[in-house]
Simulated scan of single mutants.
Amino acid sequence: MTTNREDRLALRELVENWALWRDAGDWERFATVWDPAEGWMTATWFQGPAAEFIAVSRAGFDRGVSILHFLGGHTADIVGDRAVTQTKMTINQRAVVDGVEVDVVCTGRFYDFCRRVDGQWKIVRRQPIYEKDRLDPVDPSARPKLDPELLERFPAGYRHLGYVQTKAGFTVKTGLPGLTGETVRRLYDEGANWLAGSATPGDPRRAGS
């Protein structure tokens, strides 16, 4: 039996491997971070099983979609073979919007439902929490003109990220968890229920509107 400290180190490594292997396009190893039976990913532009997320991420990577992740502080609540982890992160995407090359940076947290499978921690469900974002032209002298109606379609936590992804052709989900509000409170309740032994890690299909 591992100690709590060993579990915390293993969970931190799991989250770091997710970011490093996905951003590097190391798809075989990226597949190993997920629960093989129930892995589920929610993002602004994708909601579905981990296997499908890997496939669409790989397709985007091959055609030059640039989405990178950086990680910060990390914490884990562990009960037996279950855990809920939270990890500070930024999502960085570069794209061309109406002829202007821009960088959009979104700051938030990865909220992960994890389970020990055959002695190894795996991600059962990943739900990002989007806290704030911003958009900057790569060329400081450029002035992108944003459509205010499209911009206001998305919550403040990922307003510019949603804008850029919509312009890039993605269908972006609205109403995903932010720093405060009913949606993130429901997520926290689902996390508590997961640690208490619920049959499923909440209902990821209900995340957002």
Rank of each mutant, 00 (worst) to 15 (best):
V79Y: 11
A51I: 13
W45F: 15
G99L: 07
D81K: 12
R125T: 13
S66P: 01
G80H: 13
P128V: 03
F110P: 02
V138I: 14
Q93G: 09
I91E: 05
Q93F: 05
W45V: 13
D118M: 01
Q127L: 05
P148G: 01
P148V: 04
S66I: 09
E101Y: 07
W40S: 06
D147M: 01
T87V: 12
G99A: 09
C114L: 05
M89N: 09
T85L: 07
F70R: 15
E131I: 11
I123K: 00
F46Q: 12
V104G: 08
G60E: 13
I123R: 01
D98T: 07
I123N: 01
H69V: 11
V105S: 10
I91G: 06
I78H: 03
Q127G: 02
R126I: 08
E101A: 14
D77G: 01
R115D: 00
V124S: 01
R126H: 04
D98A: 09
A142W: 04
H69F: 06
G99I: 10
R125L: 13
I123Q: 02
R58G: 12
I129W: 04
R126A: 04
G64Q: 12
A55E: 14
R116G: 00
V84W: 00
T75A: 10
F46D: 09
Y111C: 05
A83P: 08
R82D: 01
E149F: 02
V100P: 05
Q127H: 06
Q86V: 00
V138T: 14
V65A: 11
D136E: 14
G72Y: 05
Q93I: 09
A51L: 11
R116D: 00
C114M: 06
Y130D: 03
I91Q: 06
L150W: 00
D81M: 06
E152H: 08
F46S: 13
F53W: 15
R58V: 06
D136C: 10
Q120P: 02
P137Q: 07
G108D: 06
M41G: 10
R63F: 13
E131A: 08
Q93L: 11
T42I: 14
A43Q: 14
K132L: 06
R82A: 03
D98P: 01
W121I: 01
D118K: 02
K88S: 05
D136Q: 12
Q93K: 11
A43N: 14
P148K: 03
V97F: 05
R134P: 00
G73H: 12
I78S: 10
H74R: 04
V124D: 02
W45Y: 15
F53V: 09
D112E: 12
C114N: 11
W40V: 10
Q120Y: 00
P140C: 11
Y111S: 05
V138E: 13
I123L: 02
I67H: 01
L146N: 00
V138A: 12
V104L: 02
V138C: 13
F46K: 13
D77H: 09
E152I: 00
F154G: 05
M89W: 03
G119L: 01
V124G: 03
V96W: 00
V97P: 03
H74P: 07
V97N: 02
V102D: 09
T75I: 06
W121Q: 05
Y111H: 12
K88R: 11
S66K: 11
E101M: 10
A43L: 14
D136V: 13
W45E: 15
H69R: 07
G99K: 11
T107N: 03
G48T: 14
